[in-house]
Amino acid sequence: MIINHPLLGPRDSAEFVYLGDASLIERPDPAAETALADFVDYAYMRENPAGSLRELWFHEAGDRSWLVVTRNTMTHEISDVQMARDVARKIGCSK
């Protein structure tokens, strides 16, 4: 698979480390009343769709940036790549 890095252009997926579902960006509020249940859900439960999935890839053998890659799990086709930083800021994360 070739991942089209927003800054570096097309890179071999072997340069990356895979973390998983991009919903991991949205860490629950540890001060919430339901924090325990929220974190169990956040840490262990997954949508695991057969089809389009947004996922986190880390460019370990490159510029060490985190990317949000939208990829089809049935065909391995990649339809969108964004910097995870930009995605996180858009939803209001501070870093």
């Binding site: 998983g20 262990y44 439960m45 997954r46 949508e47 695991n48 057969a50």
Partner: peptide, 18 residues
């Protein structure tokens, strides 16, 4: 192998990735 797909039909999420 297909647990995620099947159990989604029962509106269940699993501690599993395929």
């Amino acid at each position: 192998g297909s647990s995620g797909r099947l159990m989604a039909k029962a509106n269940m999420r699993l501690p599993i990735e395929s």
